[in-house]
């Protein structure tokens, strides 16, 4: 969105331009500014500290390789979030051997599989206790969402992106983002209710 890019801080723009010339110091400062946000998003997506670290490193390598092609048409953070999302989804697709699927097929497939999972398997109390030890209930529930819904929930609720920005990050129509996010929130509530009786 050009509106967002137009609002970019001049300092940030200058820093990115120095990165585009390949200045190491500039990468060092730029990465320091984004590491915490990238790591947090990665952690919310992966639900695992080690994997979040791996994703974060991959993301910055990809930024390093691609920054020459950043054209200031979107805000830099939107661009970074797109890379985080891509790195994460690539890993998931590779892990589940679904790399040949289109986006729509992928979303459809993961939604049917999660529904089946929810219908068939209530976790045992021991499993729940174990989960509670690892992480809090909400984080665990987020981790059970299908990948795309999870990415949307994290972008919206923990990174504070607007629907427009998420649509841009995921290259999906805004109506799709809104309806999938609504579905994701309802699913989250269902997961929490099934597992924790919290609500």
């Amino acid at each position: 969105m050009s509106g967002v890019a137009a609002g970019m801080q001049p300092e940030e723009k200058a820093l990115i331009q120095r990165c585009q010339k390949g200045e190491r110091d500039a990468f060092d400062s730029l990465f320091r500014q984004y590491e915490k946000r990238v790591y947090n998003m990665a952690f919310r997506l992966c639900n695992n500290y080690d994997e979040a670290g791996d994703v974060t490193v991959d993301v910055f390598l990809r930024i390093f390789r691609a920054i020459g092609r950043f054209e200031f048409k979107s805000s830099f953070s939107t661009w970074v979030f797109r890379i985080v999302t891509n790195v994460y989804l690539d890993r998931r697709k590779r892990a589940s051997n679904r790399s040949s699927l289109s986006l729509e097929e992928y979303i459809a497939l993961e939604e049917t599989s999660v529904t089946r999972q929810l219908e068939s398997a209530d976790p045992s109390p021991a499993q729940i206790a174990e989960q509670n030890e690892r992480t809090d209930a909400l984080q665990h529930a987020i981790a059970q969402l299908p990948d795309y819904q999870r990415a949307m929930v994290v972008l919206y609720h923990t990174e504070g992106l607007s629907y427009e920005e998420i649509a841009e990050v995921l290259t999906l129509p805004i109506g799709t983002v809104k309806s999938r996010l609504n579905r994701a929130r309802l699913l989250l509530r269902q997961i929490l209710q099934n597992q924790q009786e919290l609500f």
Binding site: F27, D28, F31, R32, E35, K36, Y39, N40, F43, R44, Y49, G53, T56, V57, F60, L61, L138, Q139, V153, H157, T158, R185, L188, R189, L192, F199
Partner: peptide
């Protein structure tokens, strides 16, 4: 309720060595 909870998710600190590893 879920929405309220989502909006107050805490942030996590990246490991201290992460920046060095990236660079």
């Amino acid at each position: 309720l879920v929405w309220d909870k989502l909006d107050v998710l805490e942030t996590v600190e990246p490991p201290k060595l992460l920046h060095g590893e990236i660079m």
